[in-house]
């Protein structure tokens, strides 16, 4: 039915556009049957229908909960009882003053500074090498990229077998074979967080190298060759040609790394479940513990909202930097 209408509508439009001046009668008929606002409305129906599904899902899955989080963060809601009180900034005060609550926050921020730094320092040289003239470079690219498509949960669990404190763990089995003492590794609360950093870096470096690689391939080889003829050393070529070309990719890569590290959840959970003790609890896990396990929705919402603010600032900085690069082009 509506399809019929639409087809007629287009026919009528064609009529008005091309024939109306020649056939005044036609135009007259159209004007009688199709008031302009109705025609406009009909033309807009498909466009509205097109955007509606995404709009509805997005509004329910993102916007509504975002507003709810903001609202709950000022209350003592527990997720169950229909009655709750407005407590003002009490939750925020609690989050910022309680050592137990602020600790995962600080740890997460430290984690998301160390990981991007290490990944970037390794991914750029790796990309340069993978862009080289090696015969097996496709195999090498695939090897380094493989962890990126596997679930973080799998990667985390795989490493628990390697870093296990039991004698069957790969590191400990090797140590014992060569006559050294067994180490605590993941069971050592001072070391556990660093081992998580190691595994995250391992899992991310290939993906980010691929991102840099895609950008390296846009550099005109003639440019590097000209520099070489002019007597620039390999380091100078890298410093003055390659690196500036990678600046936009670096903005994207670093922002993604920071945001990804702030959000990290599955991999540490698989490796340590927050332990030993509370030494590797990160932000997401902390929110889940407070909000769902302890039913302190209000408090956890304040944590979530602070978390959102941090992410928003980073995203905003990245977008601003990116648009500056676009302008320079």
């Amino acid at each position: 039915m509506s399809r019929e209408l639409l087809r007629d509508h287009w026919r009528l439009r064609v009529n008005t556009d091309t024939k109306s001046r020649l056939q005044g009668r036609d135009f007259g008929r159209l004007a009688r049957t199709q008031p302009p606002y109705l025609a406009r409305w009909r033309r807009n129906v498909p466009f509205t229908v097109f955007i509606l599904p995404a709009l509805i899902v997005y509004s329910i899955v993102v916007i509504l909960p975002l507003i709810q989080t903001f609202r709950y963060s000022f209350t003592n809601y527990d997720g169950l009882s229909p009655e709750y009180d407005f407590v003002g900034l009490e939750n925020y005060r609690k989050v910022l003053s309680s050592e137990q609550l602020i600790e995962p926050f600080i740890r997460t921020i430290g984690f998301s500074m160390v990981v991007p730094l290490l990944v970037t320092v390794m991914a750029i040289p790796l990309a340069v090498v993978l862009n080289g003239r090696f015969k097996t470079r496709n195999f090498q690219r695939a090897s380094f990229f493989l962890p990126s498509v596997l679930s973080a949960l799998f990667l985390g669990y795989s490493w628990t077998f390697i870093l296990s404190s039991s004698k069957y763990g790969m590191i400990n089995a090797l140590l014992e074979q060569f006559g050294f003492d067994r180490q605590l590794l993941l069971a050592d609360s001072d070391l556990a967080m660093w081992l998580i950093v190691l595994v995250v870096v391992w899992s991310q470096v290939g993906w980010h190298a691929a991102l840099y690689l895609a950008n390296l391939q846009t550099i005109d080889p003639a440019l590097l060759e000209a520099a070489d003829i002019d007597g620039a050393s390999a380091f100078q070529r890298f410093r003055f040609i390659t690196l500036p070309h990678l600046a936009p990719a670096m903005t994207v890569s670093v922002a993604l790394l920071i945001i990804g590290s702030l959000k990290v959840f599955d991999l540490p959970l698989a490796m340590t479940e927050g332990g030993p003790g509370r030494s590797t609890i990160l932000m997401t896990q902390s929110i889940i513990i407070q909000g769902l396990s302890s039913s302190r929705i209000g408090l956890a919402s304040a944590m979530s909202f602070l978390f959102f603010l941090v992410i928003a600032v980073i995203t905003f900085t990245q977008v601003t930097l990116m648009s500056r690069y676009e302008d320079e082009k």
Binding site: Y72, M283, I287, F305, F307, I311, F316
Partner: peptide, 10 residues
């Protein structure tokens, strides 16, 4: 800008 962490409880 909105991580799942911020929206998951509601």
């Amino acid at each position: 800008m909105v991580p799942i962490q911020t929206t998951m409880l509601p």
